[in-house]
Design a protein around this nucleic acid. Structure first.
Lengths: 214, 214
DNA sequence: CTATACAAGTGAATTTTATCACAAATCAAA
DNA sequence: TTTGATTTGTGATAAAATTCACTTGTATAG
């Protein structure tokens, strides 16, 4: 009795980029109480083709049933596991400006496993302020803090000019990932994953499309 | 005497996505006082291949010189013009939470031509607060405001649950573009450009990569 | 002035991504 | 049961994006 061979292909980058979208939509279905859905229906909700949806999922396994579709809870479980959402990551935020506060205060992130255990700034007027249950700490104490507390993820919401300096501190301390909001390319090494989110790029894309349509 | 034929091909989506990155790096070169750069050097800074850089630029024209490279100021001017950064867009923000404040307070956006002329919320405790030079207005007055003031861009930083409702108001009033921070797919029409920025998706991508590397 | 190194722009080849279309499995109605 | 309607998963195909590699032009050193 043969077991099914696993197709040993690497997951395309384009597929990885779509995983969060899949999670978002499946989660929405759960909230609505939907129990099952076909690739055709789900793909229409998302604005993609059904074959793309099926092909994408096929890189990770078989989650549906022919003639029936997908059980929504099964699919949510599968995608959570693929992304790694069942884990909890300790994180600190550097930069307690509006963006830092927005990240710290958004309940959606803690719900997904991001646990903020420290927030830092260099502005004496901000240091010591309460932010939810956390005190804003002096960034000078950051290396010490990282030494005493297990931190997997560093979040950079500082101005661009100091972002690399902060990244170096985080990397030296051995964080596994950096979530970077500063509009610069950070240099790291193979031991750290750097994920950029350039909000300004999104605005420029909007501008380009507005400009083109004129 | 023949004029050079224009290659009539549409610009690939992948190229459009990279335009903001080009602008970011060229801008950085300007700040550093660099005067000229080759495709090889610039591409190394950006972490892409030089042929991709040259191929991308070729969709919009010829901006360099053989044996010399690119004049940085010329390139900045060209890309600004392609993206449409010389224009000024009037914008309003709906949702005066931390994210709304972060957008309103970030000087980089006004520098790129985004002029915030109003900010709205539905929370009585927030309405009336000062945010820079703007008062937070009651979202009930949004349709009236849009009627009296020319607004090209609406920025949605509300919870997901009310985002579509706000989008409908903006679309009815005839805004040209919506910059959406709420984690939902907004439904619009062909007259409005909707640009989404899903911050949570970026976090999930980081989680996926951390998970994969384990 | 000449020779050499440099470097843009681009057609062609390659690689990656998306779509098609169909076999196999399941469901549901008669 | 049996039959017809669904619907998945996937090889094959098509389309899109990236890289190669070469031609042409420019700069610069001697």
């Amino acid at each position: 009795m043969d077991s099914k061979p696993i197709r040993m292909v690497t997951v395309p980058k384009a597929v990885i980029k779509r995983l969060p979208m899949y999670f978002r939509f499946i989660n929405q279905l759960i909230e609505q109480g939907t129990e099952r859905i076909s690739s055709r229906e789900l793909s229409q909700l998302m604005g993609i083709t059904s074959s793309q949806l099926r092909q994408d999922l096929s890189y990770f396994g078989e989650f549906g049933q022919q003639g029936y579709g997908y059980k929504v809870v099964t699919l949510k479980q599968a995608i959570s596991s693929i992304i790694g959402l069942e884990k909890i990551y300790n994180a600190i935020i550097v930069g307690a400006g509006n963006m830092g506060k927005a990240i710290a205060g958004y309940p959606g992130f803690s719900r997904r496993g991001l646990k903020i255990i420290g927030i830092f700034d260099n502005n004496p007027e901000i240091i010591g302020n309460k932010l939810g249950s956390l005190d804003v700490l002096d960034v000078k104490t950051l290396p010490e803090f990282l030494n005493k507390n297990p931190v997997e993820v560093g979040i950079i919401t500082t101005p661009a000019s100091v972002a690399q300096e902060i990244a170096d501190i985080l990397i030296t301390a051995g964080v596994k990932g950096i979530w970077n909001f500063a509009p610069v390319l950070l240099h790291g090494n193979k031991n750290v994953i750097i994920e950029d989110i350039h909000v300004g790029d999104s605005l420029m894309t909007l501008f380009f499309k507005l400009n083109k349509n004129k």
